[in-house]
Design a protein around this nucleic acid. Structure first.
Lengths: 105, 105
DNA sequence: TATAAATACAACCATTTGGTTGTGCAAGTT
DNA sequence: AACTTGCACAACCAAATGGTTGTATTTATA
């Protein structure tokens, strides 16, 4: 099992997706993310660490508070993978079509 | 920790993404997936079980062989989530623009 | 019929994950 | 100065994950 801390893994956890959702309207500090989350501050902090390590959340200290801001750029990686997969998948049918077209001749 | 077996979790594992990739060109039986994977048949079988449970791979018995076929439809869920997130994220800037436009008056 | 091939099922194992509590420390507030 | 707020760090824990080996079963094939 290799060390893997990528976007795919980051968004795999529902709690982390919830955090991302909360951050979409603007930066929050940890306390605000914790509110109504049903998870302890430390739990949230751990998730933020993961999200930060894979570049999905940037953290900036502001006095004693730490502001968390979402970064969606990395999601490109996920969409790209899906699109590439779909492309290859569709080529499969195109080849089949060509084959059928040839056999008809 | 709730039982979660969704597409997000399914594609989080690199080995499972590798399996999907292999299946894009057409259905394969387990043995063919195992080839050059560096993982035992049982390991692959476990991953296939996960992929099957979340609807990303369909398994059909054919004699003594079991054919595995990719199903990309479920990836919509992932793309949809990303698109929705991006949309909300962009609205944040639109609101800021409107605010700035108003203050200029 | 004996044997090989393809798989299923179960037990096991180390590591990771997702969470907790508890302690301590820095930064504002009263 | 005393107190509160916000957070970091560490230890701990149960469950899940990602893999293994070992055994049994079914299906082709020589």
């Amino acid at each position: 099992m290799i060390e893997r801390r990528d976007v795919f893994q980051a968004i795999a956890d529902p709690t982390r997706r919830m955090i991302i959702q909360k951050l979409l309207r603007g930066p929050l500090n940890i306390g605000q993310i914790v509110e109504d989350s049903g998870i302890t501050r430390q739990g949230i902090a751990k998730h933020l660490k993961v999200l930060n390590e894979c570049g999905m959340v940037i953290l900036t200290q502001k006095g004693r508070e730490q502001f968390c801001e979402a970064r969606l750029d990395k999601l490109d990686e996920v969409v790209d993978w899906v699109q590439a997969s779909r492309k290859m998948w569709n080529q499969r049918f195109e080849k089949l079509d060509k084959f059928l077209a040839n056999t008809k001749k």
